[in-house]
Design a protein around this nucleic acid. Sequence first.
DNA 1: CCAGACGTTGTT
DNA 2: GTCTGG
DNA 3: CCAGACGTTGTT
DNA 4: GTCTGG
Length: 223
Amino acid sequence: MCGRFALAAVSGFYSRFHVSNVDFRLDPRYNIAPTQTVPVIVNGGENKVVPMRWGLIPVWAKAEDIGDRLINARAETVATKPIFKRLLGSRRCIVPTTGFYEWKKEGSSKTPYYIRTKGEELFGLAGLYDRWRDKEGNETLSFTIITTEANSFMSKIHNRMPVILREEHEPFWLGKDALTEKQLRRVLSPYPSSGMRAHEVMKAVGNPKLDRPEVTRPLGKQS
DNA sequence: CCAGACGTTGTT
DNA sequence: GTCTGG
DNA sequence: CCAGACGTTGTT
DNA sequence: GTCTGG
């Protein structure tokens, strides 16, 4: 799955995602946890970066805490599950990241890894979002990250991984056109193993309050 | 028709 | 063990 | 995802 | 909102 990621300090964010609101304040983040509000890319004619809460709150929700565990949606079933299905048509988004974390379980111990693509520092995860209003009419935007089966590289660490969008698919994913089953399978398929890298990081990354660059840095052996 | 659910993950 | 908060 | 908290009642 | 179950 994908339950923690980073959006470290980088240059070229706005051009990489072709966003028009270049005055958006981007604070570097090294340890983003569910329920937190982070920048997400959407398209409404032109690409914009907007703040959204991680954990999907469906439009019909009575309380926002339903979103606390809807941090991921399975690619294999996203087109059939009622909660996500309706969002596939027009509420697709890209979650910009410089890397995500997965914990490898070996017996009773858990080892955290920071996982990136090769090449550009920034890449995009496939997401879906929704708009929700509380009783007072205050609107909250929230999102979920689509996951898929691990490729051979990731399966050494975990059996699931987020959907990493190939850059050429990004405009298409942000568009409002409906996707055919075939297109969906293609866009949401696991990113190639050959394009990924990972390294072990300090166990302290487990504490979501530790939002510092150190938690992304290599520790011990590379993989 | 209305009522009630709508989700993922890992572990058991 | 299980739920909540970040 | 992990970390950290988790509770009522009546009586003092 | 939309789907499923009764």
